[in-house]
């Protein structure tokens, strides 16, 4: 895949480039600020962009803003945001820029290379990759809600995986249960949350997120 990378920290940028190349991807541009990122995205039209939220010159949410601007002119441009912390508010803004092909992960996740690359691939394919922490923060909010309160421990766990954009097979593998069990859990969750089950993984994610963030 052709990847545009935006990360201002030299060590991390270097590490990410090496990681991505090790998995056989091409980093077509590696930039360290918001303006350059916007330019690189327009010029390179990458398969996916991996972007740090906090970038110079403002060192605030420069990366997020650049990405949202870029997606306005290039709808559906797959973007995976990385951050030292996750903020459900930013997740919502990112999703609002068009639900397809977005991801929002903690930077820590890059330490697990294969999972990280998995997320990049999902996003590039138009899927969603939400950090479990976004979901668990939103779940706190819903704790008092009768519906969510009724979810069992296992179902909550499955829900977090679903919201990350995993397929049933992926969840089964991750939680060491059978796919059939996963499907059963998911249908229970959807019933309890009053969501209509749909086919695509991505729509499942969006439905869950939309429900959690009302």
């Amino acid at each position: 895949m052709r990847i545009v990378l935006a990360e201002d920290h030299f060590l991390l940028r270097d590490g990410l480039i090496r990681l991505l190349q090790a998995y056989g991807h091409e980093v077509v541009a590696a930039v360290d600020n918001g303006a350059d990122l916007l330019k690189a995205l327009t010029e390179q039209q990458p398969d996916v962009a991996v972007v740090d939220v906090r970038l110079p010159p403002s060192f605030t949410d420069e990366g997020l803003r650049a990405v949202i601007t870029a997606r306005r002119s290039m709808p559906g441009l797959p973007v995976l945001l990385l951050s030292q912390y996750v903020e459900p508010l930013y997740a919502r803004e990112l999703l609002a820029s068009g639900g397809r092909g977005v991801g929002y992960m903690l930077k820590d996740r890059v330490t697990n290379g294969s999972q990280f690359l998995d997320s990049i691939r999902r996003v590039a394919d138009g899927g969603t990759a939400m950090d479990p922490e976004v979901i668990s923060q939103l779940l706190v909010r819903k704790e008092r809600d009768e519906n969510i309160g009724a979810l069992s421990e296992r179902e909550r766990e499955v829900l977090e995986w679903v919201a990350q954009g995993r397929s049933n097979a992926g969840i089964a593998q991750g939680l060491f249960i059978t796919e059939k069990a996963v499907a059963k859990h998911i249908s229970n969750i959807f019933t309890k949350l009053n969501l209509l089950p749909t086919d695509g993984d991505n729509r499942r994610v969006l439905a869950v997120l939309a429900y959690l963030d009302q």
Partner: peptide, 16 residues
Amino acid sequence: DRGLADAVRALAMVCP
């Protein structure tokens, strides 16, 4: 990043 308004909105988002 965003100042008081958005920070409080973010608080509200995750308030039970």
